[in-house]
Design a protein around this nucleic acid. Structure first.
Lengths: 257, 257
DNA sequence: CCAAGTTACAGACCGACGGTCGGTATGTAG
DNA sequence: CTACATACCGACCGTCGGTCTGTAACTTGG
């Protein structure tokens, strides 16, 4: 009868107190990594707990539910996208077309210095079964970026250089391009990984040229007004990605260690 | 000690045998209704079992996993969309533009005789939390319809009346319109329900007019070539929907009966 | 018409996972 | 030092997807 009915917990490890923001950020870091790596439903709370080094009680003190993790992660990406769009918007000068062009070029730029992050991110996005995360991030980012883009187009209209049948629809259509870019990027990376770097660059280039041409039409601009292709950047980035070797594409690896 | 260790099941009710196809269809019916009503993750296998009137063993005899239900439901919608697109394609005659116009008009038509079904479907689609189902159906339908649409555009190009920078991208862009239509439809229905039928019709009309104008541009056609708006149909349908009273929008109703 | 085999089904059971709860350590204000 | 707030712990629980053993209904060969 030495064992009590209700077990009294004994804490072996020293407690580690952190400020709520820090703790939240740590947990979010862990969650984000796991989500990108394995996909939303394949990640359990226990996994996050493990990586974040916190207990269940601690977790639920900072988050109300597993869904909150997704919201938090998505919010991060959204804020990033939004601030990047806003700074690009603020940096642009000149007439509406010039500014719009600069804006597009900046937001769709592949910054060479962040190849590893981009590789990791793309890799995660292209992994099958990650649709939920991808969709949510894309939607949230587009929603956040929409007012900025729409504002620029509206200004172009008021300046008389854009001619558009329906402001909202045109904005949404341009935004929708980013969603479809996924497949092009995927094909390009596959080509680059298969030692066809130029092929990959071509895929990306023609896609972006086509997008530019369509935006011309959508905005009622003469052909060639919009250009958001930069093949040298594509080349740099694709090489960096391909050199890292093909990613680990297995998804249901349950083999014992 | 009269109770055996392993309970021997006793079947009270008469067994009801059905052909596999029928049973599958019945289960799919139940699942589809529940999915539309409550959303994918809010529906449990037990719910489906209940509505379909079958046991777990029976269910797993016909379906390998819960995911299979989604696939099955999505496949139904896809097939419907595909066959509708193909018949519309086959029915169209004349030059490429005429046929394309007829095709678009037919596939985007609101058939007045199926107001109840459409109401139920839209209602489900617009309900918050149904994004998964909506996304999957939209994606699958678009994927299925894409070859048909792309074929028509390609023919228009070869006939010399369409001028397009990138066939794939243009096709996808036109297809993407259907996704964004959701918000317009939602606003229109809300207006109609708020006794502003004309306002609702206007919303729909202007949206479709704008889509037509944009398709003109995408295909390199003179303004006004494409017209996929039919306000009288919108009026009929919106009235039918609004008269049925506002839908039941609660989502987390756990109140006991 | 019956025995043997196959298929459609029933329901007890299981493990995993999301979430709760009573309790414990670590501050901080008065 | 006391009182209160809060960060955190981990045993526990309910639910849900999925498995398994067993049974009734249909089919077929003799």
């Amino acid at each position: 009868m030495s064992a009590p009915t209700t077990t009294q917990p004994v804490f072996a490890t020293k407690r580690q107190r952190m400020t709520p923001e820090t703790r939240r950020a740590r947990i979010l870091d862990a969650a984000q990594g796991l989500f990108l790596e394995r996909g939303w439903d394949a990640v359990t709370i226990a996994d996050v707990l493990d990586v974040a080094g916190i207990s269940k009680g601690g977790f639920y003190h900072h988050f109300a539910a597993k869904e909150d993790l997704l919201d938090g992660v998505v919010e991060r990406f959204t804020n990033e996208a939004l601030s990047s769009a806003e700074t690009a918007h603020a940096a642009a000068t000149g007439d509406a077309l010039t500014r719009f062009n600069a804006f597009l070029a900046d937001t769709s730029r592949w910054k060479a210095e962040q190849a590893p992050q981009l590789k990791f991110f793309l890799d995660a996005m292209l992994r099958p079964g990650n649709d939920v995360l991808f969709t949510r991030i894309t939607n949230a980012s587009n929603t956040a970026a929409k007012p900025v883009l729409q504002g620029m187009i509206a200004q172009g209209i008021s300046e008389g250089c854009f001619d558009v049948p329906d402001l909202t629809l045109v904005t949404e259509t341009i935004l929708a391009f980013s969603g479809g870019r996924r497949t092009a990027i995927e094909r390009a990376i596959r080509a680059a990984e298969a030692d066809d770097l130029d092929g990959g660059v071509d895929i990306l280039t023609s896609r972006m040229v086509a997008e530019g041409a369509l935006i011309d039409r959508l905005l009622g601009l003469p052909q060639g007004s919009i250009a958001l292709c930069n093949s040298s950047e594509y080349r740099l980035m694709l090489r960096a990605i391909a050199q890292d070797g093909p990613p680990d594409r297995r998804i249901d690896d349950q083999s014992p260690p």
